[in-house]
């Protein structure tokens, strides 16, 4: 749960402060070096501390369940942010990967009697395949076609899960084993996994591949001209997003010990998107905050059940009109090293 800068140990800052050519003429931001790192680091650590301390405030089964779900939702948002935020590809069926992960682990663990951890390799393989199968035909398309095709794929996965026997049909799968004993330890495990996933997404976002994603988002032609194979790069975003979604699906299956098609509707895809857009596309800190807001707000607004999704829809429009960069946007300004 740290920001893009937070993943770097202090050693990096010093090692990269080595003199580089032309140092004298660089537009400098000495003010920013320390303060920005601190800001990122503290933001991330503070978020993690809140997540770790929350059970000491309220450890009722209900509160733990809500918090666990929120953490899983953060992981989903971090995954979708790779696709939408970094790479600029609108995926409206992202929940399909969540479903693939949840069902794969659920089916394997209940049918073969495997512990959930043992299904992870299979989950990885299946989600990567799902990412490739969905991405291969669609990523060549114009971006807006991509959006609607992914929406269709989301539906296909859900309808397929409803129709097949192996997935338990409309009622789904029950009795999926947990990953730990008891909800408290599961909560901590989830927070740990999600924190690693968020840091991982942030690190990827800053790497060569992550830059290539953003080149594609900013200008595909210019990216190609620089030697970026845009199709492969988009595919990579898609597959990495799929893995994040699939692993979140395993956590989900372990959390509820049951999966059914009703959990993987377009509504869910739209909510994850809402989290990413609200927090700030491409900004990992923003997306984490956005996900926490989107997953916890309905719990606080139970009385307004009917109107909260209306509000989400209106909010999407308002954010795009008024503040398209989101609540806590990614800064194009980078830390001077």
């Amino acid at each position: 749960m740290t920001g893009p800068g937070g993943g770097a140990p202090p050693a990096e800052a010093t090692s990269e402060a080595a003199p580089a050519p032309g140092g004298g003429r660089r537009g400098a931001g000495p003010r920013s070096i320390a303060s920005r790192l601190m800001e990122n680091r503290w933001a991330g650590l503070a978020g993690l501390a809140v997540a770790l301390l929350a059970p000491f405030v309220n450890a009722s089964p209900y509160a733990l369940s809500v918090m666990t779900s929120a953490a899983i939702f953060v992981m989903l948002a971090a995954g979708l942010n790779i696709v939408v935020g970094y790479c600029g590809l609108l995926d409206l069926g992202y929940i399909a990967f969540f479903a693939v992960g949840a069902y794969t682990s659920g089916v394997l663990s209940t049918r073969l009697g495997l512990p959930l951890v043992a299904t992870l390799p299979a989950v990885l393989v299946v989600t990567v395949i799902a990412g490739l199968v969905i991405g291969a035909p669609t990523l060549r398309l114009r971006s807006d076609y991509l959006a609607i095709v992914t929406l269709g794929f989301g539906e296909i996965i859900r309808v397929t899960a409803t129709n097949l026997d192996v997935t338990g049909g409309p009622s789904g799968i029950y009795g999926i084993p947990g990953l730990t004993e008891g909800p408290v330890s599961f909560y901590y495990l989830t927070v740990l996994v999600v924190a690693v996933a968020v840091i991982g997404a942030a690190r990827l976002g800053r790497s060569r591949l992550g830059r290539a994603w953003r080149f594609v988002r900013e200008d595909e032609d210019a990216a190609e001209a620089m030697g970026v194979h845009t199709y492969k790069v988009k595919m990579a975003a898609y597959v990495v997003g799929a893995i994040w979604g699939g692993l979140a699906g395993v956590l989900f299956a372990a959390h509820l010990s049951a999966v059914s098609p009703g959990s993987f509707t377009f509504l869910q895809s739209a909510l994850v998107l809402m989290a990413v857009v609200l927090g700030g596309m491409g900004s990992i800190r923003g997306v984490v905050v956005g996900a926490v807001i989107v997953s916890l707000l309905p719990e606080l607004l139970r009385d307004l059940a009917d109107y909260r999704y209306v509000a989400f829809g209106v909010l999407l429009i308002i954010v795009m009109l008024v503040r398209p960069q989101g609540l806590w946007p990614a800064r194009p300004k980078e830390v001077a090293k």
Binding site: R203, R208, A212, E218, A223
Partner: peptide, 30 residues
Amino acid sequence: RLFGEMSVLDNVRAGTHLRIRQNVLDALLH
């Protein structure tokens, strides 16, 4: 055709895309 929202340095780093060697694991583990 610059990558407008990205930093000037990142724009020029695009030129080094094919020259620098690192894989996903390198990036994840720093």
